[in-house]
Structure formats: structure tokens, C-alpha cells
Design a protein around this nucleic acid. Structure first.
Lengths: 149, 149
DNA sequence: AACTTATAGTTTCAGTTGAAACCATTTGCA
DNA sequence: TGCAAATGGTTTCAACTGAAACTATAAGTT
């Protein structure tokens, strides 16, 4: 009889476990970017994400922002409250539906957007620099497939 | 004169922005797995991560667990408190260094581990099912490069 | 040995989070 | 029309989070 357990456990090898690796990579990258604007602009990651979609699509409602950012509506509601309060986002009410808001970046919001966006792009560039063209192409294709419904 | 702004903004196209896509994918996957054990075993994601590394490496200290999980030491300390309290992890004190703990899964901890691990693996399998062998190989290689120091 | 510095781990505090409850408005339908 | 169900958005509450302060032990220095 051995002192080791009779039952063979099969522990996860986290270093090869895809969900785990994705999580580490994603957190590392997101936090590196966030660290760059967090204090500089007094801007949280959720706020920046909201600003980014509003930079791309004007006049969205809060729910649409939530959809596009894949954040939950409470988080969006709070981020918007802070952004509107800080004068970075203008909020109006939808003409035909008084429940819906109509959102867009203010001039101040655009100013910040136009500083943070290149900064984010630069981080992406640095990350992709580690790959050659062939790898970049595969990555894009693979992510498409993994994220497909 | 046009009604559109004179300044050309360059909004991020989030749907093609790598850090954003990674974040969405990672959250989707992690939450799908977590949803599977969260209520069933009264186990948070941080607790499961701690259990997973202890399943793989017996006798680690709390700090070593933090290193391996890429979680911060406060989170690990709290997860361990709950796990020890629930009788899922046994905590002893290191022989030569009374500051360090020596951690391992208890029998009850192993029992849970051995149910959750296959479940996590199954999720990974479902995810990878979307890729063919060539794509899987590229993905592994690409992640290695992206995560290299 | 006495003293400073470093390390392991926990606690505190203030801020953030998500689920559920909530309010207001709109839509569907008898 | 009137009423139930659905929808957009906010608030509440309890849990969770990380930074900084803290305790205890160990290691290095004189």
C-alpha cells in the first residue's frame, strides 16, 4: 500500500488552460491601458468604455451603450451619471419615448476622447508588435470564430 | 461650411480593438464556467482558482498561491479564510518559518475539486471545438508570444 | 545582542459591484 | 378606453474589491 492517495486526481494545468490564460492576458492588457488614463484623466475603465462607444456611435441610449460595451445596465447607468456630472457627456431625452436617453460626447468629452484613443491604440500596437503578419491574421480569424454566437 | 465638426475624430472601432475583444471573450468564458459551480458548490471564482492551484501544487504558501493565480494577496487571504472555514483547505504553519502557511486541499476539498475540474475542462473543450487543429495550434503559439514577458 | 529592514499574512476603510426592487413610460390587448 | 405586461433607467442593499495600515516573524547589519 502506498502513502499516496489511491484515487488519481486530475488537477487542471492552469498554465495550459485556455480560459485561465485568456483571463490573465486580458487583465494584464486592460490594466496596462487603464493605468495610463486612470489618474491622468480621472476616468475609470467603465467610463472610458462608455466614452469610446459614444465616440463611435452618437445618440445611443443607455441600453444600447450597455449592449455595445457588454457591460450591465447598472454599471452603465453609474458611469453615465459620473460622465454627465463631469460635463463629458450630454444627455437628452428621446423625442418619441421619454424613457430613453439620447447620449453624445460633449466638447470636453471629445477632447478627452481624442487624447485617450491614440493612447489605447498605441498599447494595442505594442501588443501586436509581438506577432508577425501571419500570426496577426490567424489571431483575428480565431477570435472571430471563438466569439461567434 | 459643413454642419459636421471640422476636426476629424478617430474613434476606436471597438469591434476590432484587440484588448476589448480579449476582454469580452475572457469574461464570457469565465462567467460561463463560474455560473456552473457558483451556486452548486457555494464557491466563488477566486476560491475555485485557489483550489485549482492547490490541486496542482500541494503545500504552497498563500503568497505562492497569489503568484500562481495572478491574484493579489488580499484576495487570496480572504478566499483562503473562507475555504479553511468551510473545511475545504487545511492550513498548517511552515516548520522553519512561522509566518508562512502550508496549504493543501482537505478530503472535502479534493471531492469538490474532482467534480469542478472536469466541468471546467468540458467548457474549454466546447470552446476549442469551434477551431480546427491548425487554428488550435496557432492559438497556442500566439498566446505564448503575447504573454511572453 | 540590539536594531533596522524585509516578508507573510490579516484587517480596515472607502469605493465598486451586481442582483433585485423600484419608478416612469410605453406597448399590447381585451 | 383601461389594464396588464414590457421596457428604460435609477436606487438600494449586501457582497466584494484593492490600497494602505497593521501584526508577527525572520533576516541582515553593526
Amino acid at each position: 500500500m502506498s502513502a499516496r492517495p489511491t484515487v488519481a486526481h486530475a488537477p487542471l494545468e492552469l498554465e495550459h488552460f485556455l480560459p485561465y490564460r485568456l483571463s490573465i492576458l486580458s487583465n494584464t492588457v486592460s490594466q496596462a491601458i487603464a493605468a495610463d488614463y486612470q489618474q491622468r484623466y480621472e476616468l475609470s475603465m467603465t467610463e472610458w468604455r462608455v466614452m469610446a462607444v459614444l465616440g463611435r456611435f452618437e445618440g445611443l441610449s443607455a441600453r444600447e451603450v450597455a449592449e455595445r460595451t457588454a457591460m450591465d445596465k447598472v454599471a452603465v447607468s453609474r458611469a453615465l451619471a459620473r460622465l454627465v456630472d463631469a460635463g463629458r457627456v450630454d444627455r437628452a431625452t428621446h423625442d418619441g419615448d421619454k424613457r430613453r436617453s439620447v447620449l453624445q460626447l460633449s466638447a470636453a468629452g471629445w477632447a478627452i476622447h481624442d487624447e485617450v484613443a491614440p493612447l489605447a491604440r498605441e498599447h494595442e500596437r505594442e501588443l501586436l508588435e509581438k506577432l508577425n503578419d501571419e500570426e496577426k491574421a490567424w489571431l483575428a480569424r480565431i477570435l472571430d470564430k471563438l466569439m461567434a454566437p
